[in-house]
Design a protein around this nucleic acid. Structure first.
Lengths: 182, 182
DNA sequence: TGTACATCAGTGAACGCGCGTTCACTGATGTAC
DNA sequence: TGTACATCAGTGAACGCGCGTTCACTGATGTAC
């Protein structure tokens, strides 16, 4: 029996790599062989750790979602959160950023378990933003938070899709001013 | 020589099918064989019409982008445009809707030519929204349009990603109220 | 402490499959006379 | 108007490739005595 620690460490390495690769290359963008190679292993050993590729995708998305939310949880106020979310660094490093902004449009075609994680992620991000909103909003705080979350996600999706850094920045800046205007 | 019309009609059938399939299944979601079958042909004939799969993707995205913008151009005012964009019908039929909201997060990984089309699409949608904005905005009209476009795209991406129709509707409704509040 | 055995994480060849692309062909249609 | 020929859109078998998954195996490590 190999030490439990060693197996857990390998498992962790695979999941961590997959959480990054998923956001960088999409749900269909990484092969089992590639993932195992990144973890320093050969592809055959994969099934000692996961029942199937899909099982890893579920675990990796959960990891990616938690990771990116954790870093936003630390923000002291809304403008700090918005600043980080709409930063050039976030735009350029989808593999370390918001799962929704990285995988949003592909999620619709994924199995239920994956969509459930995305749903929880969207709710958590909304709650996170809502906490920073003052009571005196025209709309309810939750709905206001939904508008801000939509604008944040939309701006990042557009910023990454277009081929002009200037246009990308224009979208991010406009939304930044809007979200921190209160 | 087969009549020029017949060839053009076939070409058109392939492009139209691809424009829909692309938005429904993603850039990597449709095979040449599937596309040709949908057009009532066998896969081998594909190269009588396109230099490569990628050439078709370019043509199909151009079509998809133009199509979805055309229908938004007809809208009489901002609230009509927003209403249509954030409708349940649009959410449920990505294959006939906004290319940015359907393919946004996958576009980053596509070749330059594809990203160029997405860039033009984002600009056009912004201009379309800007036209409906009054002069008396706190920000410039263009930046205000960018915020609205971001919120529209983001809300649709989130609405389609989550597995709860109620949550989807909550995002769409919140953004609808925001975008038509002026 | 030293030896024999059991376990199982990880190896790497092999599988069936669908992919984009190529190519020799066919047969309907347009053109020339 | 009728016949012979040229064109080329479309057919379908074949290619090399990477995919997810399976499986017989190996060898390092933990356990029993």
């Amino acid at each position: 029996v190999v030490s439990t620690n060693k197996k857990a460490e390998t498992h962790e390495r695979i999941v961590a790599g997959a959480a990054k690769a998923l956001r960088k290359k999409g749900y269909d963008g990484v092969s089992v062989a590639e993932l195992m190679k990144d973890a320093g292993l050969t592809h055959g050993g994969f099934y000692a750790h996961f029942e199937s590729r899909e099982a890893l995708v579920v675990e990796a998305l959960e990891r990616a979602s938690a990771e990116s939310l954790e870093s936003l949880e630390k923000m002291a106020d809304l403008s700090e959160l918005v600043e980080q979310y709409l930063s050039t660094a976030h735009q350029e490093a989808p593999e370390a950023g918001c799962a929704l902004a990285a995988l949003g449009t592909e999620t619709r075609r994924q199995p239920d378990e994956v969509r459930a994680i995305a749903t929880r992620g969207a709710k958590s991000l909304t709650t996170l933003v809502e906490r920073h909103l003052p009571e005196t909003e025209r709309e309810t705080r939750r709905d206001e938070a939904r508008v801000i979350v939509s604008a944040l996600v939309g701006a990042m999706v557009i910023a990454r899709a277009v081929d002009s850094p200037e246009l990308a920045k224009a979208f991010r800046s406009a939304v930044k001013r809007f979200a921190t205007r209160r």
